[in-house]
Design a binder for these strands. Structure first.
Lengths: 310, 310
DNA sequence: TCAAAAGTGTTATCCTTACACCCATGT
DNA sequence: ACATGGGTGTAAGGATAACACTTTTGA
């Protein structure tokens, strides 16, 4: 038995980081333990704020300079520590963006394509096959398995909102994961309810996949009204590269012409004068992000053209 | 010297709540200690999640049923506990919405109009006088007091973005408060830098006013894309009441006709059949929120007509 | 010469904004 | 009668979505 009195049980603070980089036009996230864990550890030391503590900790453990950082969420679920243990773990998670556009081929260990964990979230090549072949059929079975008609109707509506093709909303990454969890279709749920009929897609330890889903959802929402994509880009880039970057994050193809116009007319970028010597086709002008925009306009967005065509 | 080892110093968790209600068309927030504190206390007991812990705690201490709840932010600044004390306080703050539309006159103690703390945020009656008379002049002095031209230019731009009339953005409540803090124009800043030239607007203990600003900013942003206003409304209401509610939260007047059309065409409300016997003029139809909308559409917004006229 | 990617121009449509006006009630 | 708030219609402007087409390189 822990000696702590009722009102002051032992507490420890854990930091979790969703570190994102773009490598070879793929959205990658830094992991440990063969992709099973997000970087995480105790909050220690003497930092004035959490944010600085996280920065120092990430840079010390991963040797990555950290660009943009934002807090995601704080969990203190009892389930995270063993149920009856007197210890309460508070886990504070962060989203961090870093520049890591390495050359093709050079693959540092630890970076994982995030669609490995959420294959149904990648619509860049059209409707993902895993959705039609696996996710939807099993969700339909889950709907049918409901206790009564009312429950069935509710399940049907929730599936409709989150997974229906015509109205697919790429921001609902977390909601979709949580629904799949509830339906017992991800490995993490099986730990409680017994072995389940599990979907393709790598799992993680603890609730790290949920934290990852939170990070992806936040980032997808954010790129629509804040120019954060540029934190993931090299200093100079072509509009094509930029488009592929946004597509990689949003998980869907964008309309080329409208994308270009939108970016340019918003004054987000300026030409460097150079052109790129790239993989084929006409050489592209190089651009750089106009950092001044952050001081010029309050809501410097980087609106996406919401059309679906490629 | 605290006996704790370097890597495991004492930590305690504190919950803070920004509890919002609409009373007499004014946005009110629940406070303690004569308006100087937000409800807050240690996280204790045996709740499975933070959210349930907060709910129980709020309901036990304030006797208020809590509707919508959302996490705001987690701070662990060293400054919150005495600097050199071995104790680290992690404060997790929440936004909670509750129905408290009491009759005019009946004023429970503890509820404070939030514009008491941020008088420059209320544009319902046109540009707030405190802005032109006090805030802007002192910010201008702050700009001039910068060390060199570069710093001066940067300050000017930041003031421009956050406080300029023509582009006033009601969502920037937190940014504005933090800028005023930095400029030494709020009492809270004075605690460190010595007595300051303080603006009108009530202050709070610790960083509670900053937490309140975070809550207001979050709520103002949220009402634009989620139908959370209804959490603050009585079951039946007129469109006029609803408009005044949104105006109270957003802190600015809205265009009547467009507001009505927007609300109705989005299918957010339905007529109850009844009419109200109110303060004068033609009796108004009563409406109720269509809860089903939450299941029908993923992004059930309650878009505001972004025009300024009354 | 052809594939591949870059880059330009133009049109239809819808949503937002704004203005003008009528309706029903209490005093 | 008139003040007050409720309620409706419609036109102008701007942003988005969609389409068609030209340019410049490497193989």
């Amino acid at each position: 038995m822990p000696p702590a009195a009722n009102r002051s049980r032992a507490v420890s603070i854990e930091l979790n980081a969703v570190l994102v980089a773009l490598i070879d036009d793929a959205p990658q996230v830094l992991t440990l333990e063969d992709g099973m864990l997000l970087p995480s550890g105790p909050f220690e030391g003497d930092h004035p704020t959490l944010q600085t503590g996280l920065r120092a900790w990430v840079e010390r453990h991963t040797h990555h300079p950290l660009g943009y950082v934002e807090q995601l969420y704080t969990f203190a679920d009892r389930s995270r520590a063993g149920a009856a243990s007197g210890l309460r773990i508070v886990s504070i998670s962060y989203l961090g963006l870093t520049r890591e556009r390495a050359e093709a081929g050079r693959r540092e260990p630890g970076w994982q394509n995030w669609y490995r964990y959420f294959p149904w979230e990648d619509w860049r090549g059209g409707t993902p096959t895993v959705l039609a072949r696996q996710v939807l059929p099993r969700l339909r079975r889950w709907i049918e398995a409901a206790a009564d008609t009312a429950a069935r109707r509710e399940r049907r509506q929730r599936v409709e909102i989150n997974f229906a093709e015509p109205t697919w909303n790429e921001d609902l990454v977390l909601q979709r994961y949580e629904l799949l969890y509830e339906a017992g279709l991800v490995a993490e749920a099986g730990r409680r309810k017994g072995p389940a009929d599990v979907l393709p897609g790598a799992s993680m330890h603890y609730d790290h996949r949920r934290i990852l889903a939170t990070g992806i959802a936040r980032l997808r929402a954010k790129i629509k009204y804040r120019p954060v994509v540029f934190e993931l880009m090299p200093p100079d880039f072509t509009l094509g590269q930029l488009q592929r970057a946004v597509e990689a994050l949003a998980g869907r193809p964008l309309h080329k012409q409208n994308f270009r116009r939108l970016i340019e007319q918003q004054g987000l970028v300026e030409e460097t004068g150079g052109v790129s010597a790239e993989t084929g086709g006409r050489p592209a002008k190089l651009f750089r992000f106009r950092r001044e925009i952050l001081l010029e306009r309050a809501a410097a967005g980087s609106k996406l053209p919401l059309s679906r065509s490629a």
